[in-house]
Computed example of a mutant assay.
Amino acid sequence: MSAVDIEQPAQQSVQQSAPTASHESAERALRIELAGTYRAFAMLGWTELIYNHITVRIPGPGTHFLINPFGLHYTEVNASNLVKIDVDANVIGSSAYPVNPAGFVVHAAIHRAIPDAHCVMHTHTTAGLAVACSQAGLENTNFYSAQLHDMVAYHDFEGVTVRADEGARIVADLGDKRVMILRNHGLLSIGSTIAEAFVRLWTLNRACEVQLATAALGTARAIPDDIAARSTRDALQFNPRHGAGADVLQALLRQVDRIDPSYRE
């Protein structure tokens, strides 16, 4: 996202039903987990200066989301400075920081259209963007791509994502898939939880990293479709009975805690 596309709306308050104590407790826990995930992204090198987003829906009355405060690096995000917004990127309550509504176009369209898309993640990692720019896209040639058989959607590049009408086309291209390669742009994942979205994105990004490294060696050895399909069925990290990525995310959050636990503030 370029600086010229940024709009900074005035702070405002939106009328809403009073949250219950349980909703407030759930929101606080979600704030801590999301802030820690931003720090984990920074630890992994999945940052793009002050751009890109992870959004998550807050349980309770209204359709509200948490998003990073615009202008801060992921290492500066903490539980209290995450901004609560509605699906149109209006600030709920007040915030000392603006949001970047241009960056929320893709997220808003998905949150609106897909009931279980409680978390949406978008990155511009070098490996992910390189594969997104390639003619072939993701190739079925490595251990990680084999775990994503028939799981990856594609959306053609339409320029900087600032136009709301593109959202409907992104949703249509996503269909029933839960990870997407935005051609010439980057990677995207959704999940019913932060952990679920994360483990999907990590697997896709890791597949892109290995593909990029393999390209330097010449032609890659293809994996047969039936083996890839079996690998995807056997991949435990996507299975809710095996935590759907929760154990992976918690392991990363423990690392973040050892580095800098200030994300909990």
Rank of each mutant, 00 (worst) to 15 (best):
T55A: 13
M1S: 06
H111D: 10
A109Y: 06
R39F: 06
R241A: 14
L204C: 12
Y38A: 01
K84I: 15
A172V: 06
Q147E: 12
E265C: 11
L138A: 02
A42M: 08
Q11N: 15
Q211F: 03
I92R: 10
F70G: 08
V210D: 08
H185S: 05
P101Y: 03
Y38C: 02
Y144I: 01
R241D: 14
N78K: 09
F238C: 02
A168N: 02
Q16M: 14
L188H: 03
A228C: 08
G191A: 04
M43F: 15
F70E: 05
N239W: 13
Q15A: 14
R258Q: 13
E166P: 12
Q237T: 03
Q15R: 14
I85M: 10
F70V: 05
R200I: 02
I223E: 07
L217P: 13
M43W: 13
N78H: 11
H23R: 12
L182I: 06
L72F: 02
L34M: 07
R200A: 00
D225V: 13
Q211W: 02
T219M: 12
F104Q: 11
A197G: 06
Q147I: 15
T193K: 02
S25A: 15
N52S: 12
E209I: 04
G36W: 07
I32A: 09
D173P: 11
